[in-house]
Every structure is written in structure tokens, then in C-alpha cells.
Design a protein around this nucleic acid. Structure first.
Lengths: 354, 354
DNA sequence: TTGTATGCGTTATCAT
DNA sequence: ATGATAACGCATACAA
């Protein structure tokens, strides 16, 4: 699926086709507003930007009316040049075609729009070179901030942070510390799943965990195992399988697992892995959740329709947008940035009879 | 315009300026490159933009090296102001959390990146007001072009076209004519499905069609019915049900359909509708495709894993990116824009034993 | 071939 | 309270 291979990432402004600039036939500038309201452009700028040392209420009204009459829209290019800052926000995301990510992206785009911040979308494939490319590119576009979903460690990330680029880390904590985190408490969620396993007496269980370079996967795993260990039923090493967060990899990991063990229940790193596992169960004539109970993570939005057998950790997708916006706002206003913006999660149980 | 010529063109010092906005201390501008390579900024600009009346190969090399050494990245704000044009491209899309759309978005983002065009993502919800809002907003951001997926009729769309905003219409044709279309031949695809139905002797069939304001849905429907009509087996009015393109609506449409008819096969407006239909079949103990054969549209990327019973029309998702980029390029270079960029489709048959 | 100088639309710094 | 005006970083017409 990902035949997206960037060969040359570093080429700067190669050839700009000599396209003639669009003529501002109907473009109305600040000058026009000034003229129409009989004041200077300075006053117009001040009024429209709501500077405290405003102007007479009378002038303000005149200016506003003129701007309104003319349908004046400030040219972002001018402002960007002067302020070295745009209202653009970049969303760096592993893969927009993944339902988990795209649902979060939806929420973020919606929230950003409401605060008048257009969103540039960048697929990183969790590739550090690509992430760096975009990080640099977005800085040269003077974006006001970056929402970084699924961050990977990279030199460009270090650099961006040292340049004071406002970055909100989503779902996965900043690889080298610092920054603001937005997401659920994965450790607590892992423990909650373990708690459920204990109640159901699923001590004979296995784990197909996600990549450990991801703080999210790591914390889920650690929370889960720590709770079981406390209960005197530690997970054995041979019951732990590694997998990447895709259906294909989940299927393969499940094959490996079932080759040597027949656990009563399996905790998967995410729902996609669980999908793959389910396929393997079907092939082995294992009933889910009768013979094998399956627990996933993320609660894929399609679950209700395609996976009525899957219990999972539900993520508040819709809450990400406002949380990310809030985090960025704090960064912008220079408030003491909260270390993390934790979102609530819940266990979604499916398929169990009781 | 007064002529106050600041005799000192060399930058006296960055310290004087920028006491206001966040200044990128290590930001390297065209001036720095010029200084380091011992030429003027004009030459640097010409070299880096590949102007035909270039410069000596020797100077060019010096400039390029200097730019490379300094890690120079042109500040887009300056160029945007001067050219009244950025390299940004906006993707207007009904809903990025829909797998069909997000997969196409992925392809487009990837292709645009390779031609150095960052992509602004805008969810329109197929709402004409929202579409207009974004159309205006993107124009004031001086985007170089718009990729419009799932266009709806709107006044802003008219306006944008009359302003010569380059727009590529994806999957759904321009509501008011004109413009470039990128997508498959939905009419032909509808006929192909009908052809399949005839071969399988599924003449006792029904249709759950998508919204008819969408050219895609309309053409699929028309292609399908016209072929059956030609074969002397026209679809009866009571076998036609309307639905929106979601699982929920598909489920409901299927309920209505099955209340009065038990067709041997159903052609659905898209795969999501088919998913909903499948759920209803399960509730009615109807085997798919044994009792009811189901045909969808789009070939949702998850189908192989979650819908092995679903035959459908496969869309070349990965081809959209390059096709859209090509279409926009043609618009930009002013070439005679092809009326449409048709992509190939194919029938994907699943679940049938033979 | 290369350099000089102007302007793009805005904000911010000074005067007034 | 308001106005005149200098940057901001770049592309380019015009000189040289």
C-alpha cells in the first residue's frame, strides 16, 4: 500500500513555472478601506486588529463600515511577511488512510477551523526523514504551530523544539522529553484491561503488543503486565508477541502465537492487530470470544459494524480537536504549558453474553 | 510615493529589526546566500528559480553551494507577497474520516508533496456553505489550486471559477459544468456491474442507490439500469431504494427494501451501504451471497478483511494523486485542459464459489 | 551576465 | 488619537 517513496527530499525551490501572477482585479486592500473611511492605513490596521489604544468610537465605526462595505479581507501574505507568522497549523500524521488517525484528524481540523486556523496535512509514515522534511518545510512556511501525531525520534524534531516551534504531541509522547502531550493515559488503560482479564479469570492470556518505540504501545503493555504481576499472575515471556499496528502484521503475529500456545484471551496492541488475529482464529476454527476472547485498543469507528466480537479500549476521538487547540493556545500565549492534556478513556465490551 | 532611498542595502544588523515578533535567530535569507557567494540577491533568486537567462555555470555553482552550505530555505511569505501566489494546494473533501475519501486523500497528499506542494485539508461535509467558506478562505491564502472531492453546487464555486481559481473536480463532476474531472467512468462501471448481473442471471434484482445530486451516484445508477433495460430486464420502480452513503443509511434502506421484496441480488451505491445491507441480511437469516448476492462500489480498502462476501467495483486509489497533480499542472501551465482524466476501474468478485 | 532599485500588503514605530 | 513611513524577504523590470 505504501509505494510512496520520496527520492529527493531536500530540493529547495527547484523550478517555479513562470506562471503569471494573478491580477488583483477585485482585490481590496487596506489602502482602499483607509481611503473610503477617510483615515490612514495605520488607523485601519489598528482598528481591525483591536489594538487597545484604539481610536474614537466614531472613527472605529467608520472604518468597520468601510471594511464591511468593501468586503475587505486582510491579505495573509502581507501579514505573514511582516509578522513572520501565519495562522497555518500543520498536522503531521503517520497515515491519513488509517481510520484511527483519520478520525482524530477530522476532529482536529474541525476544531482548528473554528479558531480560524487552516490545517496543512502531512503524512509521515512514521519515517524520521519524512518527519524532518515536513518539520523544516512547515517552518519555512511560518506555520504557527504543529500537531504531531505519532512522533518518531529525529534530529529535525530536536531542532524544531530548539527553534521554539510550538508542538503538541498527540497520542505518543515526545521522544526526547519536553513539549505538551495530548492523549489518554495509556498506562492506566493497560491496567484497566488487565483488571478486566482478572475479573473474567483470563489469567491464561497472551499479548500481541505494538512497537515499543511508541510510548503509547509501551505504556499499554507496561500497564497491563504490571497489573497482572501484582495479581500474582505475571505474563510469561513466551506469551508476548511483537507486531506492528496493521491487520497484516496482526494476522502474522497471531499465526506465530497460535503455533505454540492456545491462550484463553489475547490483549492486542490495537484493533487492527485484533482484526488480523480474528482472521487467524477463523482459520483455526476458534470461536471468538467463546474459545479465545480478544481485546483490542482504540475502538475503531467501524467496530460496531464489522467487529461485534471485539472488546476494546474506547478513545474519545471527538475530544482531541479541542484538546489540541487548547494545548497550542497555551503554547502561543506563553502560559505555563501543562505537561499533558489527559483525555478520558473507557472499556468497551462486546460479544460477552453477560 | 516618496523616494527615501536607504543607501545602505546591506543589512546593518538583524538586531535593529524584529524586536516584536519571534525572530528565528538562525534564519538564513537570500541576502546571506548572496553575501556568501559574492553576488547580488537578484542573481541568487534567478539561479535558484532556474530562470532561463541564468548565469555563468561558475556563478551558478557558487550560488548553489552557498545556499546548500547555509541550508537556505526560501521564506515563502516573501514570495507569496510578491507573486500573489503560494505553492499551497487545498483539498476540499466531504469527510476525511471516511475510508474512501481518506485513501484518496493519502494518494493526493503524497503526489503533491513530490511536486513540492503542501496540502491544506478542508472537511466540507458536503455542505455548500462550508464549501463556500473554505473556497473563499483558500483564495485569500493565495492557494495555487484546489482539489475538490465531492463537490456540491454553490455560489462560491461559481465565483471561484470565474476568478480563474484552478480547480480539479474529483470523483464528482463540476455541478455547473466546466472544469477538469478526475475519476473513473461511473456510467461504464454501472453497465459493467449490470453485465455481471446478466451473466449470473441476477435479473431479479434491486438497487439501493446513492444521492442523485451526486454525478457519481447518478451515473452508476444510469449505467446499470440502461444495460438491464437493453437486455429486456428493466429494473422496476419498486426495486429502487434511495439511501445516503453510510452504513446506517444502508441498513435502513435495506430494511425498507426487504420489507416488500426479496431480490436475488442487490446493487448498492457504495460499499458502506452494502455493509449496512449485510447486517440486515444477517438479522433476517439471509445468506450472503447464497440467498442474496451483494454488489457494492469503491472496494473499500478493508474489504479483504471485513467483507469477504462483497463483490464490488474496484477503484485505483493510488492513481488519484498523480492524476490530480497532472490536471492541476495543466491548469497552471495554461495547456488546453483535458475535459476529464479518466481512471481505470475493475470488477472485484468475492464470495462466489465458481 | 549581473547589479540596482522598486513594490507586493501588512504591522509597528515613531512623530504629531 | 492619528498619520507618515520603515521594514519584512522575495521576484523582477530596467540598467549597466
Amino acid at each position: 500500500m505504501s509505494a510512496h517513496a520520496p527520492s529527493d527530499l531536500r530540493r529547495v525551490g527547484k523550478s517555479v513555472s513562470a506562471a503569471h501572477a494573478r491580477k488583483p482585479a477585485n482585490a481590496v486592500g487596506i489602502q482602499d478601506v483607509a481611503q473610503r473611511s477617510g483615515v490612514s492605513i495605520a488607523t485601519v490596521s489598528r482598528v481591525l486588529n483591536g489594538i487597545k489604544a484604539k481610536a474614537t468610537e466614531e472613527t472605529e465605526a467608520r472604518v468597520r463600515k468601510a471594511a464591511d462595505d468593501l468586503g475587505y479581507r486582510p491579505a495573509h501574505a502581507g501579514r505573514a511577511l511582516r509578522m513572520r507568522q501565519t495562522k497555518l497549523v500543520a498536522l503531521l500524521i503517520p497515515d491519513i488512510s488509517n481510520a484511527f488517525y483519520s478520525t482524530i484528524a477530522r476532529s482536529i481540523e474541525c476544531a482548528l477551523r473554528q479558531s480560524d486556523h487552516p490545517m496543512i496535512l502531512c503524512n509521515t509514515d512514521e519515517d524520521s526523514a519524512l518527519q524532518d522534511f515536513y518539520l523544516d518545510e512547515m517552518q519555512s512556511y511560518h506555520v504557527r504551530g504543529v500537531a504531531l501525531l505519532g512522533a518518531v525520534e529525529s534530529s529535525g524534531l530536536q531542532r524544531a523544539l530548539s527553534h521554539d516551534l510550538p508542538i503538541a504531541f498527540i497520542n505518543r509522547r515526545p521522544p526526547q522529553g519536553g513539549g505538551v502531550f495530548v492523549g489518554i493515559d495509556n498506562y492506566a488503560a493497560g491496567r484497566a484491561v488487565a483488571e478486566h482479564f482478572l475479573i473474567k479469570n483470563f489469567t491464561e492470556c497472551a499479548i500481541i503488543r505494538g512497537p515499543q518505540y511508541s510510548s503509547a504501545s509501551r505504556e499499554r503493555f507496561e500497564g497491563f503486565t504490571s497489573r497482572l504481576k501484582e495479581a500474582g499472575a505475571p505474563v510469561k515471556a513466551e506469551d508476548i508477541v511483537d507486531s506492528r499496528l496493521s491487520i497484516e502484521d496482526g494476522y502474522e503475529a497471531a499465526s506465530r502465537l497460535f503455533n505454540r500456545r492456545r491462550p484463553r484471551a489475547v490483549f492486542c496492541g490495537n484493533d487492527l492487530i485484533a482484526y488480523g488475529l480474528f482472521r487467524r482464529c477463523a482459520e483455526l476454527n476458534l470461536n471468538v470470544p467463546g474459545n479465545v476472547a480478544v481485546f483490542g485498543f482504540d475502538d475503531n469507528p467501524l467496530n460496531d459494524w464489522v467487529a461485534p466480537w471485539l472488546s476494546t479500549v474506547h478513545i474519545p476521538y471527538a475530544a482531541f480537536g479541542t484538546a489540541v487547540t487548547r494545548a497550542l493556545m497555551e503554547l502561543w500565549t506563553g502560559e505555563r504549558p501543562a505537561h499533558a492534556e489527559l483525555l478520558p478513556f473507557s472499556l468497551k465490551l462486546r460479544g460477552s453474553a453477560e
